[in-house]
Amino acid sequence: MPGRYGKVRLESWGPQALSVAVGLTVWEIAGRLVSAAILAPPSRVLARMAAMTASGELPALLAASSLHMLAGFGLAVLVAVPIGFLMGRVPWVSRLLDPLVTAFYSLPTVALVPLIVIWFGLFYAARVALVFCMAVPDMIVVMAAGARDIDQRLVDAGRSLGAGWMQQFRTVLLPASLPFVFTALRVGAVRAINAMITAELFFAAVNLGASMKKAASAFDSAGLLAVLATLCLAGLAVQELLRLLETWASPWRQGVGNG
């Protein structure tokens, strides 16, 4: 989804830099007009981020938060990618699992928090579980839709050239799947980072979540926005990383990421 923007950025980053500059200026003016407790201007947020980075506090918090994010996301990939793929390619698997996936996709994952507390407590295991539960349904939906839309002509060509099951998988299905596997990874990564901070706010407050709660209770909006901006930058960085990985993994496709 966000992939479509990739190409535009390279061609013309001038107007976009301008847009960011205008937005920051408006925010700066608004931030100076209202009380700093409510909305700190970007200059103060940047200064805070710089100070927190220099003291090593922000990188340490981000690293600690990443631990459960990566564990949950990794487990989610292991489960969602094969299940989604099977649902897209095998009709009876799709029929069997479709109502369950629809139900869990419609259920706000955060509503599972009380149940997760009962099963996994309030700490690391609970956070991993929430990240997992939040990333899986969205990734399965993307994977299944992508696998269903694999060009049948490619599959038929493989079959008529006498490819066996394994060969067909390796030479046809796998390369044809890469685009939507990466879409699923991007969607899942957004959800995982979302879940990473949700978990820290809803279970025992630790790492970045604890830092946000502390800043909020002290009406320190600069501190709040500094954490928020860090999360936002981390999200964008992960998207960019996945895009680079996709270009590297599928060099035969030009302008990767354009849906």
């Binding site: 901070i197 949700t198 706010l201 999360l231």
Partner: peptide, 20 residues
């Protein structure tokens, strides 16, 4: 071009993190 950077930024931003 004007809105794209803001939209991409907001899409990756977690709603839960905005709550405080």
């Amino acid at each position: 071009r004007a809105f794209q950077p803001w939209v991409s930024m907001m899409v990756v931003t977690s709603t839960a993190a905005l709550v405080p």
